[in-house]
Simulated assay, not measured.
Amino acid sequence: MVTPSTFYSQASLSKAMHDLESERQFHHPAFDAVRAGRTRAKTKSGFEGTIKDGFIKETVRCPDYVLWCACRDIGRRMPDDFNADAALIIRKPGVFASRFESGLKKLWPRVKIKVGPVQYDDPCSFVHRNKRPVHLKHFQFAYQREWRLCAFPTASQMPAAAFNISISADAESESQPDADD
């Protein structure tokens, strides 16, 4: 099942699933401003905001996108956290990703797709500040060791709900060696 990223913002989801996928927060320290008695401050990059808990909290957003998520490793905790009673083991991730991309391109021929592991960030660190949120998550989720396929259809093509795509073997992807083996 392929899901719009906004799906994961539902409060009814489990703690392991609930996340604002299309945004990330960065916490700029503003301790000097707090000591000076100010309630607002400006960051070195020019962002201005209200000080909360000693930080200026800046939210970086990207447009909604479609994603499919998996774990890079088998973890004992994952079935419980995601209420799963089965697992899909992908032995050739490169072949799977290629087939997945082909399935999406049948729907949206010019869709842009980004595949890869998620990087986990600390909101008080700015290492990932200039990266789009699609492959970033709060470090509280680091145990998930996530790998994802993200697609960026146009706004008019963005689905309103989760949907299935057909992934089929074709001669081209079967004959190519998988770099991930």
Score class of each variant (00 low, 15 high):
Pro177Glu: 04
Val111His: 04
Phe82Asp: 03
Val118Ala: 13
Val127Lys: 11
Arg110Cys: 11
Ile90Val: 14
Lys106Val: 15
Lys57Ser: 10
Phe163Val: 11
Asp181Val: 14
Arg76Glu: 15
Gln144Met: 04
Val66Arg: 00
Gln176Pro: 02
Val118Ser: 09
Ile113Cys: 05
Ser166Thr: 08
Phe139Asp: 05
Met78Cys: 05
Pro109Phe: 04
Tyr8Trp: 12
Asp121Cys: 15
Tyr120Gln: 08
Thr154His: 05
Ala161Trp: 07
Tyr143Val: 02
Ala169Thr: 10
Cys71Met: 04
Phe7Thr: 12
Ala97Gly: 07
Asp121Glu: 14
Arg38Asn: 14
Met158Ile: 03
Val34Asn: 10
Phe100Ser: 00
Arg148Cys: 00
Arg91Gly: 14
Gln140Phe: 07
Ser14Ile: 03
Glu23Thr: 09
Lys42Glu: 10
Ser102Lys: 15
Pro123Cys: 13
Tyr120Lys: 11
Asp81Ile: 03
Gly37Val: 11
Gln140Arg: 14
Ile56Arg: 02
Ser173Leu: 10
Thr6Asn: 07
Ser173Cys: 13
Glu58His: 13
Thr3Cys: 08
Arg24Tyr: 10
Leu136Pro: 04
Gln140Ala: 10
Gln140Leu: 09
Leu136His: 02
His135Asp: 01
Phe139Trp: 02
Gly46Met: 06
Pro109Thr: 06
Asp181Met: 10
Ala161Arg: 06
Ile51Glu: 00
Ala179Arg: 11
Pro153Cys: 04
Ile165Gln: 01
Glu23Ile: 08
His138Glu: 09
Ser156Val: 09
Asp121Ser: 12
Asn130Cys: 08
Lys114Thr: 15
Pro93Glu: 04
Arg91Gln: 10
Ala97Ile: 05
His28Ser: 07
Phe55Ser: 07
Asp121Gly: 14
Tyr65Asp: 00
Lys114Pro: 06
Leu20Gln: 14
Arg76Trp: 06
Ala97Arg: 01
Arg40Phe: 12
Gly46Arg: 08
Ile90His: 01
Gln25Val: 11
Thr59Pro: 03
Ile51His: 04
Leu88Met: 05
Ser156Thr: 10
Thr154Lys: 05
Ser156Tyr: 06
Arg110Gly: 12
Trp108Lys: 05
Arg61Asn: 13
Asp64Ser: 13
Ala87Pro: 01
Ser168Lys: 13
Asp170Met: 09
Trp68Val: 03
Asn130Tyr: 13
Arg110Met: 12
Ala155Cys: 02
Phe100Glu: 02
Pro79Leu: 01
His28Leu: 08
Ala86Met: 15
Arg40Leu: 14
Ala160Thr: 08
Phe163Thr: 07
Phe26Cys: 08
Arg76Ile: 05
Ala142Leu: 05
Ser102Arg: 15
Gly103Ser: 05
Gly75His: 11
Gly54Met: 08
Arg77Val: 14
Ala41Val: 06
Asp53His: 09
Ala161Val: 06
Glu146His: 00
Ile89Leu: 13
Arg72Pro: 01
Gly49Cys: 12
Cys62Phe: 03
Met158Pro: 04
Asp122Met: 01
Ala41Arg: 03
Arg132Val: 13
Lys44Gln: 11
Ile56Pro: 05
Arg77Asp: 15
Phe96Gly: 02
Phe126His: 05
Ile167Ser: 02
Ala97Lys: 01
Ile56Glu: 02
Met1Phe: 09
Ser22Met: 10
Ser175Trp: 08
Pro29His: 07
Ser14Thr: 11
Phe152Ala: 00
Arg38Gly: 09
His27Ile: 09
Leu136Trp: 00
Arg35Cys: 15
Ala70Val: 00
Cys124Arg: 15
Arg38Asp: 10
Ser5Gln: 04
